[in-house]
Nucleic acid binder design. Structure first.
Lengths: 194, 194
DNA sequence: TTTTATTGATTGACGAGTTAATAAAAATCC
DNA sequence: GGATTTTTATTAACTCGTCAATCAATAAAA
């Protein structure tokens, strides 16, 4: 009984299931079978729509990155000053959604795979470039060296995220606060009025 | 023809082979068979000495962390002032040895596995605590908030390393320089004379 | 009748960990 | 000092399991 127009529904179900499954397992060692089962279909159908495991995984990654982009966009829309824009970007990076176990696992997997998988590497680069570009734009009115400041902030964000996500000692709020403090320092105390 | 006292030789050969193999493959998807072959022995012998794949991998991780510790120790020994000590720690984190492909792969794998593997998580925490403690000690005479400063520097270092290791745009020297600049900013321009 | 949806069953491959066996050095005993 | 027992070293062969990907078949909509 082939209901027509199933492709988009199936694809999205598989993407969701992939993220959930990676989150539950904590790593990439999830099988197409597990994913398909969680999405309520057969292995064969998953292969039919995506072609292979790699492509399923990439689609899931793209989905997470798109969600993150949305998060940033919404916050940037409400920011009226350059400083507020910088704060908005930082806020997006430490949003609760970024700390969902599934999201954390997906990010770690992304990092680990970026070394060997070209598609993954491209995706990671895309994220890094966007973050950098957003930060540069926000910081340009606030410092003589927006490029250096953006690189520093971006790296600090990644590092804080890594620590907060993996270490038991630190939590998301603390990391967020540390990033905001650093932003204030980088930009110079005189500009810190939002 | 059992030559006696093979155990330490075999173990160390396996550790070396594991790192090389992970470096060559770029990820954790290396088999015990591959490792054993590179180390010049049978799969069974690898299991005999280590018990299982997890323990082989953990031993390799410990080896890399030990090497990093040595690198830091040597540099710290020659540092005469607090500022020089901080610089020495940063220098160790961006030493060429940290950017060997095998080392990068091992680090990424460490991050990815820390979520699910307890032993790996412990190892990672150990590294993070040591780095933090070293930095706090070095920064204590230079700032009122050595703890915050250490957390910021440690995260920045991790983030810069991540970017330099994975992105094509940045290189180790550039990352190193950025970290040193940040150190100067954090500590305050007045203290920047080594 | 062609296209879209769907899956059970299968293929082919690989891999972690075990076992049973061989061999020689070292330790113990007579 | 020679015989034996134990310990250490070593691997070929095997078990048991998994999993990605494919195929052949079924069914209904266009």
């Amino acid at each position: 009984m082939p209901k027509l127009g199933m492709e988009p529904i199936r694809r999205s179900a598989l993407v969701t299931a992939t993220i959930e499954e990676i989150g539950a397992a904590g790593h990439l060692g999830v099988t197409v079978g597990q994913i398909a089962k969680r999405a309520g279909m057969s292995t064969a159908l998953a292969h039919h729509y995506f072609g292979g495991k790699d492509q399923i995984f990439l689609a899931a990654m793209r989905h997470i990155l798109r969600e993150f982009g949305q998060e940033a966009l919404v916050r940037l829309r409400d920011a009226r000053t350059p400083y507020a824009r910088a704060e908005a970007i930082v806020g997006a990076c430490f949003a609760p959604s970024c700390f969902a176990p599934a999201t954390i696992s997906a990010w770690m997997t992304l990092y680990a795979r970026a070394q060997t998988n070209d598609g993954t590497a491209r995706l990671l680069r895309l994220y890094q470039l966007r973050l950098h570009s957003n930060l540069t734009h926000a910081l340009r009115p606030l410092t003589d060296t927006p490029d250096v400041a953006a690189t520093t902030m971006a790296s600090l964000i990644d590092g804080l995220y890594l620590r907060a996500a993996l270490a038991r000692t630190s939590d998301a709020n603390h990391a967020h606060q540390t990033a905001l403090n650093a932003l204030k320092t980088i930009v110079g105390p005189k500009n810190d009025q939002a």
